[in-house]
Amino acid sequence: MISTTLASAIGRMEQGKSKVLIAPTMHNSLHNSILTASLKKLKAMGVCIIP
């Protein structure tokens, strides 16, 4: 559900119809290199990351 919603939102963002903001929250054990790499990719695509 989350990945489908994000994919749709990114598609709309690429068309200039919306903006995407992400505020990742998680337990410290979930903050790892996979998350960091994913956030970097999203930021490069134009998604705004709220720390």
Rank of each mutant, 00 (worst) to 15 (best):
M1Q: 10
M1V: 06
M1I: 06
S3P: 10
S3K: 14
S3T: 15
S3E: 11
T4G: 15
T4Q: 15
T5I: 15
T5D: 12
L6T: 02
A7H: 07
A7Y: 12
S8C: 13
S8K: 15
S8I: 13
A9N: 09
A9K: 03
A9F: 05
I10C: 01
I10Y: 00
I10Q: 00
I10N: 01
I10G: 01
G11H: 10
G11Y: 14
G11V: 13
G11M: 12
G11L: 08
R12F: 10
R12K: 09
R12V: 03
R12I: 02
M13Q: 13
M13R: 01
M13W: 02
E14D: 07
E14M: 12
E14C: 07
E14H: 15
E14S: 04
E14A: 04
E14R: 13
E14N: 12
Q15R: 11
Q15L: 11
Q15K: 15
G16V: 03
G16L: 03
G16F: 04
G16Y: 04
G16C: 04
K17A: 06
S18Y: 02
S18C: 14
K19D: 12
K19E: 12
K19G: 06
K19C: 08
K19T: 04
L21G: 02
I22C: 03
I22R: 00
A23N: 08
A23H: 10
A23F: 08
P24C: 11
P24K: 08
P24I: 06
P24Y: 08
T25V: 14
T25S: 08
T25C: 05
T25P: 05
M26N: 11
M26G: 07
M26H: 06
H27S: 08
H27K: 10
N28C: 07
S29L: 09
S29D: 15
L30Y: 07
L30A: 13
L30G: 14
H31I: 09
H31V: 13
H31Q: 12
H31N: 12
N32G: 05
N32H: 01
N32W: 01
N32E: 04
S33N: 12
S33A: 15
I34M: 14
I34W: 12
I34T: 13
I34P: 05
I34G: 08
L35M: 14
L35T: 10
T36E: 14
T36H: 13
T36Q: 13
T36K: 14
T36F: 11
T36P: 00
A37K: 09
S38H: 11
S38L: 09
L39F: 01
L39K: 02
L39M: 15
L39A: 01
L39N: 00
K40H: 04
K40W: 04
K40V: 11
K40A: 10
K40P: 06
K40F: 11
K41L: 10
K41R: 12
K41D: 11
L42R: 02
A44L: 06
A44P: 02
A44T: 04
A44G: 06
A44Q: 08
M45K: 10
M45H: 07
G46C: 03
G46T: 03
G46M: 06
G46V: 03
G46F: 00
V47I: 04
C48V: 11
C48F: 05
I49G: 00
I49T: 01
I50G: 01
P51Y: 05
P51R: 01
